[in-house]
């Protein structure tokens, strides 16, 4: 194994650049280093002006997502040696506006997320519970997969529908809505339906499936969306066929 590798990193300085450019850095190639270690090496030893986001270094915080050689990746979980001899292209997540260098603005997602009410909703009439709402392991299994989402935005970055139409609610927001819809303690699925089952919600999805392919937590947002399409379609059918009282 060669002991050095080149990172070709996207730079964008809004105060002086009109277009992003690529800058090359030559860094040590160590077998235990992930891409994020390489970026930290650049920041600490080569070029302190490079901007990027990171925090936990262990695939939990979801802030170090970038495009590595064209693929959306968590840079803390992507080893440099996989890409030897390089060079490795490091770009900011696609489908989001670039703020600076490798930092993107995910404000669009942050504004969409509360619209699907990703929290436990209980009936208004109900009196506050005196004890916790109990749940069986089998009931927890129903939504557990969707609760693994760390909002890293790799799915939005991989989604061509979101790339073409920024109004699309997007994979993670819908998967997180399903996380609560499928929770036995939740009573809010009817409240979420209007937003989810709209033209900019599940119906815009064409099941490309890339969101699930790039997800580092195996959330399977594509599966969540297709399953919800079935739920929403059955609900619409019931509304059409059954008299009001029998629903």
């Amino acid at each position: 194994m060669a002991d050095r590798i080149t990172l070709r990193v996207t730079r964008y300085r809004p105060e002086s650049d009109t277009e992003p450019t690529a800058q090359e850095y030559d860094i040590p190639l160590r077998k235990e280093w992930v891409v994020l270690d390489g970026l930290n090496h650049i920041k600490d030893h080569l070029d302190g002006t490079l901007s990027y986001r990171w925090s936990c270094r262990m695939g939990v915080c979801g802030s170090c997502g970038m495009i590595v050689n064209g693929e959306p990746k968590l840079t803390c979980a992507t080893f440099l040696k996989e890409y030897a001899p390089g060079p490795i292209r490091i770009e900011p997540l696609s489908n989001f506006p670039i703020v600076r260098d490798l930092v993107v603005d995910i404000g669009d997602f942050m504004r969409k997320l509360p619209r699907v009410k990703p929290w436990l909703i209980r009936s208004e009439q109900e009196r506050p519970a005196k004890e916790e709402h109990l749940q069986l392991p089998a009931e927890r299994e129903e939504y557990e997969q969707f609760s693994m989402c760390i909002n890293c935005m790799l799915c939005y970055s991989a989604c061509p529908v979101y790339a073409l139409d920024q109004d699309f609610l997007g994979p993670a927001a819908i998967a997180l809505a399903q996380r609560y819809n499928l929770d036995s303690r939740d009573q809010g699925s009817a409240e979420r339906m209007d937003v989810l089952s709209s033209a900019d919600g599940i119906w815009a999805c064409t099941f490309v499936g890339e969101c699930s392919a790039v997800c580092p937590k195996d959330v399977d947002p594509a599966g969540a969306i297709q399953r919800y399409k079935f739920t929403a379609a059955m609900d619409a059918l019931k509304t059409l066929l059954l008299p009001r009282g029998a629903r």
């Binding site: 089952s197 033209a199 119906w203 399409k229 079935f230 929403a232 379609a233 609900d235 619409a236 059918l237 059409l240």
Partner: peptide, 11 residues
């Protein structure tokens, strides 16, 4: 309308 078109599509 969309749910019904989707059901036809799926079937």
């Amino acid at each position: 309308m969309e749910p019904f078109l989707w059901l036809l599509f799926s079937a």
